[in-house]
């Protein structure tokens, strides 16, 4: 069995979750703090779009922006000698693009559920907005944020459509697990596909179990423990 798809997939999913996590949190923070309801609806719609669009459409847009014949792609290639399309970084970009809405939505929901009184109390105690966010809102929203992060990670791990469009299916370079499974099946090697399928199943199950574990553990501050 060729182990490179496993490594490539884990590497891609790990780096993309770090990126998605922060972009998602900041996008959520930004939208939650928007004063105008209209702007909120429009921006939320735009940020959630990647969740409902076919990944190939996303891939199409990314190609449109970063393709070597497009201005940005050209600029990167000519001045920085960076070719993003059909490189490993393209797998990361694809994973970030499809997993971002999951992270953003979970974080937004979690932030909005933090009791407003805590934030107001923190303000009257003289805490600055930044420390209110990191010391009050984030810890209280952590269960939601964590499960959003885990969902995004699994989504990144399973990314196929956009990756195929912008990163291709280059063995040892951009062939992730989903692409490897596809290639094995296309080549008629069902045995090889089985092995990869089992690995994807195991990893996904472990990650989802972790998510549940964190959610249960989070009841630390609730009354349940005290009554026990």
């Amino acid at each position: 069995m060729d182990y490179s798809p496993i490594l490539i997939s884990l590497k891609t999913a790990s780096l993309s979750i770090v990126i998605t996590f922060f972009i998602g949190i900041f996008a959520a923070k930004w939208v939650v703090e928007l004063k105008s309801q209209k702007a909120k609806i429009i921006i939320d719609g735009l940020l959630t779009m990647p969740l409902v669009l076919p990944p190939t459409v996303l891939g199409f847009f990314i190609l449109y922006i970063l393709g070597v014949k497009r201005p940005l792609g050209r600029l990167l290639l000519e001045f920085f000698s960076v070719k993003i399309v059909f490189s490993w970084s393209a797998t990361v970009i694809a994973a970030v693009a499809v997993s971002f809405p999951l992270m953003y939505r979970s974080a937004r929901g979690a932030f909005e559920q933090v009791d407003k009184n805590f934030i107001q109390a923190a303000r009257t105690l003289g805490m600055c907005e930044r420390s209110i966010f990191w010391r009050i809102i984030m810890p209280l929203a952590l269960p939601g944020v964590t499960s959003g992060g885990i969902l995004s990670f699994t989504r990144g791990l399973g990314e196929f459509g956009a990756t195929a469009m912008i990163a291709g299916n280059i063995a040892n370079k951009t062939r992730t697990l989903p692409l490897a499974i596809y290639s094995e099946v296309a080549a008629g090697d069902m045995e090889g596909a089985y092995e990869y399928v089992v690995i994807v199943l195991i990893v996904s199950f472990i990650v989802l179990s972790l998510m549940n574990y964190f959610t249960i553990k989070e009841s630390k501050y609730s009354n349940k423990d005290v009554i026990k």
Partner: peptide, 10 residues
């Protein structure tokens, strides 16, 4: 400001 439910950070 003393909040009705005290708003202690849990």
């Amino acid at each position: 400001y003393l909040f009705q439910n005290y708003a202690l950070f849990p």
